[in-house]
C-alpha cells in the first residue's frame, strides 16, 4: 500500500513521516501507543468516520508496531503513505 514512488530509497532502518488512514475513530488516548502520531478524526461524505494518523516513525519496526496495534483494535487500514523521508 505504499503509494509514493519517490521513496524507493526507504530501507528497514530509515525514519520517515507516514500518514495512515483507517476506517473508524481512533481515540486520542492511543497517541503514546502509536509512536506519538497525531490523530485527526474526520467525518467523510457518507457520514462514516475516518482517522488520519500522521507522524514520524523511526523505522519499519515502528511502522509495523503501529499497524499491528490498529489491527488489534480492529480498525481497517485504508492507506499508508510516506509523506517524507529523512536520509541518514
Amino acid at each position: 500500500m505504499l503509494t509514493n514512488n519517490h521513496f524507493k530509497s526507504i530501507t528497514q532502518s530509515s525514519p520517515a513521516v507516514y500518514q495512515i488512514v483507517v476506517n473508524g475513530a481512533v481515540c486520542l488516548d492511543h497517541t503514546p501507543l502509536i509512536g506519538g502520531m497525531q490523530i485527526i478524526v474526520a467525518t467523510t461524505s457518507i457520514k462514516t468516520k475516518q482517522s488520519i494518523l500522521t507522524g514520524r516513525l523511526s523505522d519499519q519496526a515502528a511502522l509495523h508496531g503501529v499497524l499491528n496495534h490498529l489491527y488489534n483494535m480492529r480498525l481497517p487500514v485504508i492507506s499508508v503513505e510516506v509523506l517524507g523521508s529523512y536520509q541518514q
Binding site: 503514546p32 506519538g36 519496526a61
Partner: peptide, 15 residues
C-alpha cells in the same frame, strides 16, 4: 526484544 514495536506507550517513555 521484538520484531516490531509493542503496543506500549513508547512515545511517553521517550519523552
Amino acid at each position: 526484544i521484538c520484531r516490531f514495536d509493542p503496543p506500549l506507550p513508547l512515545y511517553k517513555y521517550r519523552v
